[in-house]
Amino acid sequence: MRTEHAHDKRAQKSDVCTLKTEEASVKAKLQKTHEDQEANDEIRRIVIGDFSIATWYASPYPAEYKQGHELYICERCLKYMRFRQTLEMHRCQEPFPRGRLVYEDASSSLYEVDGKAHTLFCQNLCLLSKLFLDQKTVYYDIGCFLFYVLVAKRRSAPPHTPSFYKSAEPESIEYTFVGYFSKEKSSIEQNNLACILVLPPFRGQSYGQLLIELSYELTKLEGTTGGPEQPLSSQGFHSYRSYWRRAIIQALLGELPSMERYLSRTCGRNPHKGSKRKVECTQRIFSLSRLAQLTGIRTEDVLFTLDDLGLLDFWLGRHVVCISDETIRQVVAERRINPRMRMDPNGLLVDEDDEMHSSSSAESVATSGTNDSANEEEEEEGSDSSSSS
């Protein structure tokens, strides 16, 4: 059954107030974190690619790399350095992006990186993410995780040539590290996402929603259902609730079986027999398991979302959705839900026949040595060029 319009307005105002309160709490927590960093000699700023970014939390980098309060990170291999000169002399030859391409559209690409095959890169990735995440990160035991690294693409024009000479060189594509999400190779709790990060310069551009959508698309390809590792932060909860609403509304409005076909197939009965009125052709009925199968979302998350939208009913001893398309569209208008997805459905480059948990052994390079020794090879002794923010 659907809640009344006045109740929906009160619920929306309550959600807005709750979100503002949580945002104020997050800002206060970040301010306290920065004060603690200044007192505890932690990293306050990183330079990666074309961006200089203020950090939010402390990360367990080696103590000697925290002395200048600023860290320089190679965008290709995520190796961290103390001085800008060291980064300029680095001239990284590591493959970037690395791993197996699993998704691509006009502006971004997603690569699957095995934590066991690319140990050092994934360790550096986890250390970087801890600067912007308060919890749920791993550092060393990463062999049982897959990392899905998202990069933004931009085209660079070939070098200038005279107008009378037509250059045969195509436009080259440059990649920029945006963020990632990780997942366990085998999760007992059916978690399809363990940790997610989008760097601050790229927030507000729907990259977080793209990562969430892709995590569920990979889950559907595996023929299972899943969800994020619990507990969720306040920001993570609002992001996932937004996605759950869009995915379920899209499934309800899609090409799904009608109520008559559903009853005749599952119950072996005629819905019009003994009934005083016929069911409208636009009215549909679905079980929670059916919606979970269509969306890849865990049943408990489907149940929460339907109840949150006021679309849940109880019929023949179980929870079902029995509602008309017109009512669903009304809920979409009242809640201002945009059912369109961020990802390009034609951008997935994997299917059910692919092994989603296999590593790309042909592309992987064996990595040896410790993290500290690898990062100290190009350090210049006696350099005093490190600068604070």
Rank of each mutant, 00 (worst) to 15 (best):
E22I: 02
T266C: 04
P345W: 08
P271W: 02
G143C: 05
E64D: 15
S14I: 06
L263W: 08
G236Y: 03
V138Y: 04
D307H: 11
P162R: 08
P62Q: 10
D351E: 07
K185P: 13
K183Y: 02
Y175D: 12
E94M: 05
G208E: 07
T282L: 03
G115R: 02
G254S: 15
L125R: 01
E70L: 13
L306I: 07
K116D: 13
R269C: 12
Q235D: 05
C144A: 11
T367V: 14
E326P: 00
A28C: 04
V198T: 04
L128W: 00
S360I: 12
E355W: 07
Q31E: 13
A292P: 01
K29G: 07
L263C: 12
Y180L: 03
E184Y: 13
D15M: 06
V332D: 11
I248E: 02
P170C: 07
S234I: 01
I173V: 15
P158Y: 02
Y180H: 15
R45D: 09
F304D: 09
G317Q: 09
K183L: 10
R246G: 08
E255G: 04
A11N: 10
N192V: 02
D351G: 15
H34A: 06
T266M: 06
I337G: 04
M341T: 12
T55I: 09
S385A: 14
T282F: 02
D308L: 06
Y262P: 00
E363K: 14
A292R: 04
S368W: 12
A117M: 12
M341I: 08
C74M: 03
N192Q: 01
K20W: 11
Q283G: 02
P97K: 05
A54H: 10
L312K: 09
L214R: 04
H69P: 07
E300N: 06
S52E: 07
L146V: 00
S25V: 05
T33P: 02
P60F: 02
D105R: 04
H272L: 07
E94S: 13
Q37L: 13
L30M: 08
G382V: 04
Y72C: 03
A366N: 08
S324Y: 01
C195K: 06
S387V: 15
Y111E: 00
H118A: 14
L19T: 10
K276R: 08
G268L: 05
R91K: 15
R246N: 08
A117G: 01
G317I: 10
P158H: 01
V320P: 02
M89I: 09
H118W: 15
S163D: 13
S167V: 12
S14G: 10
Y140S: 12
A106M: 01
H160A: 15
H5P: 11
Y175T: 10
S264M: 14
S186E: 13
D313T: 07
S275W: 07
E104I: 11
M341Q: 14
G347E: 01
V350G: 02
R203W: 10
V151L: 01
P339S: 03
T305R: 05
S387I: 14
I212H: 01
Y243I: 02
S109K: 06
S368E: 14
K32V: 05
T266Q: 07
P228L: 07
Y61T: 06
S289P: 03
G310H: 06
E174R: 14
P271A: 03
R284Y: 08
E229K: 12
F237D: 06
C195P: 00
T3M: 12
L71V: 08
